[in-house]
Amino acid sequence: MTIDLGRGLVLRNPVMTASGTFGYGEEYTDFVDLSQLGGIIVKGTTLHPREGNPYPRMAETPSGMLNCVGLQNKGVQYFIDTIYPRIKDFDTNVLLNLSGSCLDDYVKGAEMVDALDKIPAIELNVSCPNVKQGGMAFGVTTTGISQVVSEVRKVYHKHLMVKLSPNVTNIAEIALAAEAASADSVSLINTLMGMAIDAERRKPKLSVITGGLSGACVKPVALRMVWQVAKAVKIPVVGLGGISNATDAVEFMLAGASAIEIGTANFIDPAVSVKVAEGMKDYCKRHGVEKVSELVGALITA
């Protein structure tokens, strides 16, 4: 079930948990044996601490939810001093999702994370829709992404995964720009910008009015984008967006993903990630697939 994403990032199986949905892994250890996962991607972290957006930050939508958490975190230094020592010996790959509001923050943050032995990769978040300055600003233009990825690349020597925004006209173009700037892989999709209104009170349901949509409802959009990006780039693609079970995960692999992330589904079933990993193994057995990597892009279109 092994997947090699390159530059030292080897996953035991293709299943990882998505940033912002799995805390630091500690929140889920009562339900999940982390050694049964390919990796966990911890909470979006920025160079400086952030309080995030005011409450309310969440609205349930048909088969999904909107959030506008706004990257609440205590900063990279706090992560290094307090959280890293607690989670560094987890028997799985622990990736850090790194975000920033200016180029300098990304570079400084990446430099600090580069020194952490047990973090084999960064997932560079250039696609958070809930932070005013930066975040997504870098992820929606080819020049923005080229700049941030190439600058981070200069100081970061391990696997650099770039998380892409679906809130663009042509996601393949953005992925190509990340690849040209020496990203090792791309992950997609981050949340889709959305909105919810309480008609009775004539008010927005979220404190900052708009937020990111996730959950089962975004799966068809995510699948289509993974398909488009996987056809365009040569680096591995990590697929996410509404994956709730092993069949969903296999669909993303067939569309061209080398690995997958499980996000919002962790809220509905805290044990879903290991179930997906087991289910993928069963699928492979059932279909006589010896190596799970054989599924990558194996969609039959003719």
């Binding site: 939810m65 958490v69 809220f267």
Partner: peptide, 10 residues
């Protein structure tokens, strides 16, 4: 949403 301290929504 999560009830576990992971999503930071509440």
């Amino acid at each position: 949403a999560c009830g576990l301290g992971a999503c930071l929504c509440c």
